[in-house]
């Protein structure tokens, strides 16, 4: 009896039931339908690649494949894997060259007093927007003059094309770390090298990683620069090999598809693994602001 009275006396609390929002508003229906249509636009062309790569008699048509792994075995022949290895060599050299140079310059731009810093940074920003195709003719002329039409100088060129944007990405990352840390280390008489290796590099790692990935992907995807600047067919990277595939008389569609999947896979995986830091780097990238 007493409990009943007590219950009666408790003040009326607001309902704990969630406020029901209309589940299917018009906006929601339109949004989801639009996305499904756009998703199909993205998915349908890709489907062919997967279907054809496991199809015994693939053509340009999209159809349910007769399953086989022969195409992948074909695409993994030494002749083709060498093209992938060349791609890897090109991209790794380009990445290391560009990222090391970009980090050093970015740190200097961010922390040191440099005369005409503003105009220099503006020039670098301008360079990051220059269409790369303009470089093909003069570089070809320069390199053929000194006999450098091979894989290593080409890798350096590919690094240089990514360098301006990498400087910007890394400079933004260095700008974001508080100066106090370096000052404290300086007071403790840490050398410049120690400050760089113990404080700056670990803290800017996400920025450096996104710059390095940008450089790697840039080199991995480039086609015309290696095509022009590498004279030996054995040193040509993946995309040039693929071009040969597409233009051959008896084209093996399944092998083309399998090879392009193998060729695309490293880049896609790299992006997906690093998507978080890369997105942050790209969105914060001052070069795009």
């Amino acid at each position: 009896m007493s409990t009943y009275a007590f219950q009666h006396l408790t003040p009326q609390l607001p309902s704990t039931e969630p406020i029901r929002v209309k589940r299917w508003s018009l906006t929601k229906v339109i949004s989801n339908t639009t996305l499904l249509v756009i998703g199909a636009f993205f998915l349908l062309p890709m489907l062919w690649l997967f279907a054809a790569s496991v199809d015994t008699s693939a053509s340009w048509q999209l159809r349910v494949p007769d399953f086989t792994t022969r195409n992948y075995l074909l695409a993994l022949q030494p002749d083709y894997t060498r093209a992938l290895v060349n791609s890897l060599i090109l991209s790794l050299i380009a990445t290391v060259v560009a990222t090391v140079a970009a980090f050093l310059a970015a740190y200097s731009f961010s922390r040191q007093h440099i005369p005409w810093k503003g105009p220099i940074l503006l020039t670098i920003l301008f360079l990051s927007g220059v269409p790369i195709s303009i470089l093909i003719v003069p570089i070809y002329k320069m390199f053929s003059y000194v006999g450098w039409l091979s894989i290593f100088p080409t890798a350096v060129i590919l690094g240089v094309t990514a360098l301006p944007f990498e400087i910007y990405l890394i400079k933004n990352a260095v700008d974001a770390i508080p100066l106090d840390l370096e000052e404290a280390a300086h007071i403790e008489k840490a050398s410049t090298w120690k400050i760089l290796s113990r404080i700056v590099i670990p803290l800017t790692m996400p920025g450096i990683a996104s710059a390095a990935i940008f450089g790697f992907v840039n080199a991995w995807g480039s086609f015309l620069i290696p095509l022009v600047l590498i004279s030996r067919a054995a040193e040509q990277p993946g995309p040039v090999r693929m071009y040969g595939f597409m233009n051959s008389v008896a084209i093996n569609y399944g092998a083309v598809a399998a090879f392009s999947i193998l060729y695309s896979l490293p880049v896609v995986i790299l992006y997906l693994l690093m998507s978080r830091s890369f997105r942050a780097g790209f969105v914060l990238g001052g070069a795009v602001r």
């Binding site: 756009i38 062919w48 060729y263 880049v267």
Partner: peptide, 23 residues
């Protein structure tokens, strides 16, 4: 949809060319 759009963006140009050629 996000993963499809991002994968399409990450594909190298040569692969995109083949995909769209086929399509």
């Amino acid at each position: 949809v996000t993963s499809l759009a991002i994968v399409a963006w990450t594909l190298p140009p040569a692969a995109i060319a083949i995909i769209w050629y086929a399509a």
